[in-house]
Amino acid sequence: MKLTKRQIDGATAPGKKPVYLWEKSLAGFGVKVLPSGTKKFIVKYRAYGGGRTATQRWITIGAHGQIPLEQARKRAQQILAAVANGDDPQSERLAFREAPRLSDVWARFEDSELSSKKAATARDYRANWVQVIEPKLGAIRVADLSRAHVDKLHRSMSGTPYRANRAIALLSKLMTLSEIWEWRNQGTNPCRYIKKYKEEARERFFSMPELNKLGEAMRNLVDEGAIWPDMANALTLLLLTGARRNEVLSLKWSWVSLDQGLIRLPDSKTGKKTLYLSDHAVRLLQHQQKHSRDPDSSYVFPGQREGKHLINIAKPWSKICERAGLQDARIHDLRHTAASIAVGQGVGLPIIGRLLGHSQTQTTARYAHVDNDPALTAANTIGRAVAGALLK
């Protein structure tokens, strides 16, 4: 006996529990009548064609009134035919619905691996995820992420090639982890054949006239109270040492040896590292030690919050550049300038590499066999040139 539209229309569930109407000519196909009056076409079966001990599954096909009875019956026949072939349609639907999405990959990566990355790397990863990848791809199932998705994202960022390449590099890492975690088939990384954009190296060096302008602007802004002396000292030390921004901002007094003219960083982008201090840099740090805004801080350049170091020097740098009339100038250009001054003064490239920490230093033992004198001499060469412009 087949169910009829009239029979379904007239069915009710007078109590608090649903009432079921079953079609005898198609076992497992029926209608669920709810006390609210809603009626849904359903299919009931045993998983993988099993007997009474197999798991019982229920699939909702759709609501009566939205799907015609005959269409619901055909869909039920397809489902039950799949069951007869040993499939489990409901389990497959659940697996599809619960399949990990790209946002799940990021969450696991952030929880298990991101903490082992250096602070700057972790910050860049988070920025790329939150600002670039998540809004466009975060909701996509990992197994469904295709090269077309990746290519579209990459092309949408053609105006910022460096950031586009970094975003794809992170996405590729997440896809590789998906394969390792068996969330995606092996060897299917969709980032594999995406051609990276060509990145133009940006090497800006300040000329001596520009350094004169920077020095004058810093001194005037400090005198006017527009920037803290600590900020001006931090920027000057960046140029005197060629150090990276975070290496100077997070600097602790316990790492500084003014007598030896050395700063021994326990960690940096390239591992343990020694900074070499010119005489001018030593005098600047001696002045900073006496006149720091927080003399009791363990940090050379204390921040506004107690126990924290200076973090944001972008705003004072912007003020200095504006006052000096310099366009398109980055803080990192101070590091480039220190190197260019050394080259101009005839310092050899191996020594410059040591000054800037370009070599990967894994242990302090590597320094035990190297004489510091050539590097200190080079540091003083840079210091004299910089001092003539910034430290008048």
Rank of each mutant, 00 (worst) to 15 (best):
Y367Q: 10
V222G: 04
T270V: 08
N189L: 07
H309V: 14
K196N: 11
A379D: 10
T4C: 11
T38R: 09
Q288N: 11
L355N: 14
L391E: 15
W181N: 06
Q77F: 01
M231S: 15
H332V: 04
Q288K: 12
L376N: 02
L376A: 06
M231T: 11
A63F: 13
A164D: 00
P374G: 15
A76M: 02
A387W: 01
G49M: 01
K152I: 00
N128P: 10
S25M: 10
L239K: 05
A338Y: 09
P229Y: 03
R219N: 14
Q360V: 13
R166S: 14
H309P: 03
S257I: 12
I341L: 06
I313T: 00
M1A: 12
A389F: 00
L237Y: 05
L239Y: 08
L21M: 11
K252I: 06
L265T: 11
G51I: 01
F96I: 13
Q362L: 15
P35D: 11
L349F: 14
Q289D: 06
S103G: 02
E199H: 04
K196D: 05
H358Y: 03
R192N: 14
W228E: 12
Y125S: 01
A169T: 04
M231G: 09
T38M: 02
S318Y: 05
A164C: 14
D373T: 15
I140T: 05
D371Q: 08
F109A: 07
L349P: 05
P209S: 07
M208A: 09
P190E: 03
L80H: 00
T188H: 06
F109S: 10
K392P: 08
Y48V: 07
A342E: 01
K269L: 04
A54L: 01
V130D: 13
G271V: 05
A99N: 14
A314W: 14
W183V: 07
G65W: 00
D333R: 11
I133M: 03
V105W: 13
G348S: 12
I79Q: 01
A329K: 02
G15Q: 04
K308P: 09
A281Y: 14
E92S: 08
E216Y: 15
L376T: 04
A281E: 06
V248A: 09
Q56G: 10
S298F: 00
W317N: 02
Q360H: 11
Q289T: 12
L258P: 07
H280K: 04
Q360G: 09
K117F: 10
R93A: 13
Q56E: 13
H64I: 12
R163A: 03
K40Y: 15
N220M: 05
R57W: 01
A375C: 11
T4G: 09
L239A: 09
Y367D: 03
K5L: 09
I59G: 00
M231P: 02
D9H: 04
A314M: 13
V222Q: 12
Q260L: 14
K16Y: 03
D87I: 00
R6K: 06
D296P: 00
V222S: 14
W58T: 11
M157R: 05
L258R: 12
C191P: 00
S103E: 13
A164E: 05
T176R: 05
T364Q: 12
G348I: 08
I311M: 07
G49S: 03
W106Y: 15
R101C: 10
